[in-house]
Design a protein around this nucleic acid. Structure first.
Length: 333
DNA sequence: GGCCCTCTTTAGGGCCTT
């Protein structure tokens, strides 16, 4: 595949930020497995503190994001149709590579769900990129409301491991009491609209992805809230969620961990943070603060459930196409 | 809207997300 160096001009939208974190979830995860549960908190929290300090010191991090992809970003950003086609082309190439790989690995099967393939082939698990994400919106309805903030964090850590931006919804923000994001904060020319942001977002996630690999995006209540919202917003902008994005919802993981507790379990992200004694840094219901909280919660949940990457993918991941396919219908008649 | 729980399954209430 032809590749060339490319730069994102994030400075075009000053409120897009790429942060530098040094902690690695996988290092922490493996360390946790070695040292046992007693030392988890200090290790995880130490990593989190280090990362967050980096975040708060990084107001100057409004910088160009460099990654490897095709094309010229400045030209592409000025021509939405062009960049959309480039991304679609790149997605198609990636998909072809992945399916070729699957068929080579697994045999003559024409279609194999990657979840089963990962469960059977540990090498495929190494190709997964885990990204914790969160969105803030103008309300709860995916049909009527809009995304106003999005934050992501690659669990591998390293440079440019986090991405955060406000989003201009083109409407008033009626629920500032929830997240403290006001209409005047987002309805500004230097805040990107979703249509401008999606190409940047796709490029950013692509820059974190391993060659021929898959991306696993993790959010709390992802199945019922974040993912349907993303699908809707992508659709409004004539984009599809890339075919190599899998999702994991931490809400059912938390339900499974907490159900043995006896009393009615509290499954809100902040309650889970309290349960695991994870301090909140920043404002609750701001996307990046919730991402950092969920990062630590996700580590603890997967540890408590003794989940490996293959078992997590096989038993707890879903495709965007599976959203809306309810296992149990409330009003089936 | 999907999922879980129960005073249930021929259903309904509550949680979770903003």
């Amino acid at each position: 595949m032809r590749r060339a160096a490319m730069c994102f001009s994030l400075s075009q939208f000053p409120r897009c930020r790429v942060h530098t974190l040094t902690n690695s979830w996988w290092q922490s995860f493996h360390h946790i497995n070695r040292i046992g549960r007693g030392s988890i908190s200090s290790k995880v929290l130490a990593a989190g503190k280090q990362g967050l300090e980096g975040r708060f010191n990084s107001t100057e991090n409004r910088r160009t994001l460099t990654t490897k992809s095709e094309g010229n970003s400045k030209a592409a950003l000025s021509k939405k149709t062009t960049i959309r086609q480039e991304i679609l082309d790149e997605t198609t190439k990636s998909e072809v590579d992945i399916y070729s790989s699957e068929i080579t690995e697994i045999g003559n099967t024409q279609y194999v769900d990657i979840r089963q393939a990962i469960a059977e082939n540990k090498d495929l698990a190494k190709l997964m990129t885990f990204i914790i994400f969160d969105i803030e919106t103008t309300g709860l309805s995916r049909d009527r409301e809009r995304i106003i903030e999005i934050a992501l964090r690659d669990l591998h850590g390293g440079e440019n491991s986090t991405f955060q931006t406000l989003v201009n919804p083109g409407c008033i923000v009626p629920n500032s009491f929830v997240h403290k994001i006001t209409t005047s904060m987002v309805n500004r020319p230097d805040v990107p609209r979703m249509g401008d942001l999606i190409p940047i977002l796709l490029r950013y996630v692509g820059s974190r992805q391993k060659p021929g690999g898959y991306v696993v995006l993790v959010a709390h209540n992802a199945r019922c809230f974040d993912v349907p919202f993303l699908i809707k917003e992508f659709g409004r902008c004539s984009f599809d969620i890339p075919s190599n994005w899998l999702f994991v919802d931490t809400l059912p993981l938390a339900r499974e961990v907490m159900k043995s507790g006896g009393s009615k379990p509290k499954l809100k992200l902040q309650d889970l943070g309290q349960h695991y004694e994870i301090p909140l840094v920043g404002s609750a219901h701001r996307a990046m603060a919730d991402v950092h909280m969920l990062t630590a919660v996700f580590q603890r949940l997967t540890f408590d459930l003794k989940l490996t990457i293959p078992s997590l993918i096989e038993g707890h991941s879903f495709w965007p196409s599976e959203v809306g396919r309810s296992k149990k219908k409330k009003n089936s008649g």
